[in-house]
Every structure is written in C-alpha cells, then in structure tokens.
Amino acid sequence: MISPDSDIHVRVRGLRFSFGPRVIYDGVDLDIPRGKITAILGPSGTGKTTLLRLIGGQWRPKSGSIEVDGVNVHKQSRSQLFELRKRMGLLFQSGALLTDLSVFENVAFPLREHTDLPESMIRDLVLMNLEAVGLRGARELYPEQISGGMSRRVALARAIALEPALIMFDEPFTGQDPISMGVLIRLVRTLNKAQGLTSIIVSHDVKEVLSISDYAYVISGGKVLDHGTPEAIRASRSEYAQQFLHGRPDGPVPFHYKASKNYADDLLESVE
C-alpha cells in the first residue's frame, strides 16, 4: 500500500472476526502509517469500534494478525500486552471516565498508575492537558456533573496524558458544538505535528475528518471498500465512497441492518 515497513505503525492482515454467527470482518488488510492521521470511515454498526478494540488487544480475531510496532498484539502475554498499551491511547465512544473520581483525578489516573512523578508535576501535567481541551475550570466536577461532549474531552485529556505514540479516537467529534469541534480538530492536528503521534480517527463526520487526515479507509460489510488520500477518496468514483461521502440512503452500502425477510413479507406475516 504505502511506503516501507518501518513507516507502518499498525498492520492488519487477513483480519476475520465475528460475534457468534454475525460476521464483522471478513478478510481485511489495513496499514496505519506512522506519525500520520488515518481516518476510518464506515456506516454505523460496521465494526469500527470493534476494530479499535481488536487493535487494543481487548478482543481476539478469529484469524489474521494485527501488528503494532511490528509486534503481534494477540501473541503477547498479559504483561507484554500491558507494556504495549502504555504506548497506546484509546478514546472510548462513551468516554469511559471513572465515575468515582473527579475530572482532575481522571486525567491524573494514568500518571499516578504508571509514573512516580511528584504531586506538583502531576498537577501541572493535568492542568496543561485540561487546558488543551478547554476544561481546566471543570477540574473539581465529577463525571455525572458534566455533559457527554465534555466527558469525551476529558477522556481525550486523559488519553494523551502519558504521551502515547499511537492514539485511537472513537467518534471524538460527536456531541461537540462547532467551536469545540474546531478546537479538538486543531488539537488532534497539533498533537500529530508536534509529537509525531500516530492517530486513528473513527468518525461519522466525514467532512471534518477528511479535512485533517492524511489517509482514509472506507469500510463496510466486513471489507475495505476504498482507501487512499482524502483527495483520492473525495474524487473516488467508487459508488461506495460516494454514497458514504454524500450520505445517500440508497446505494451499495445498506442502511438497514440485515433482516431475514423482506419488509413487505415481514409486515404481511400474520401474527400467530
């Protein structure tokens, strides 16, 4: 696909995965270039979140391999996997903040767990990261006292606290107003430029994500439908990509979750 081996941060080969009988991935190859922002686009329910969890080693593929920094994620012992994860951040779709800790303590959590930094240093780092997401003033609040969009920003501050080399964002822009969205987009780009962070962004906000990403994959139905630079994706003549970019309900990407009967039969079927 792109560039030589060492430039590939995450390499996915022949990935197959299913939940029971429901096939989520059916032979997928992906290369996530190092130090770049890669977008993963795809309709709701395709398995984007699942892909991030597979890369993070939370779930195990049925077959195929996922390598991060040349290391097969699913062939590691638990402690090796944890070492790998210290260099990986995953921003959950839900934020996944610890509800018994304040905003400040949530961001401090990975620092306290993994470093022996003095309290004053932790405080500075936490405040810097909270400032970056515009929530320094909310540090005393608890997760139940902040909105969904704010939670996700706190989660972002927490995810970058340990300065990971790879960060995966699951729908970071959902629930953000245009101003915070702009700030977050700039933040992601700054992190990427300043620290050479590899970013994977899963999102529905196609326009915004394509505007900051260096490369993009369009996935649907367990396959990679299209990939390339944002320009290439925008210009792509592939029906799939076009349908997705322009949000049309009809086309090769089905809007409907697969049903066993057609709609008319389902409605006409008499109730026993």
Binding site: R53, G56, Q58, F82, E83, R85, K86, M88, G89, L90, F92, S94, A96, L97, L98, T99, F109, P110, E113, H114, R158, L162
Partner: peptide, 15 residues
C-alpha cells in the same frame, strides 16, 4: 463499572 466501559477503559490504560 463494567457496563459503562470503565473496566475496559482501565485495561486500555494498561491498568
């Protein structure tokens, strides 16, 4: 904590 992804969140932070 499990239902709200807090436990998997910790796992992903290598905790």
């Amino acid at each position: 904590m499990k239902a709200t992804d807090q436990l998997s969140g910790m796992e992903m932070m290598a905790v």
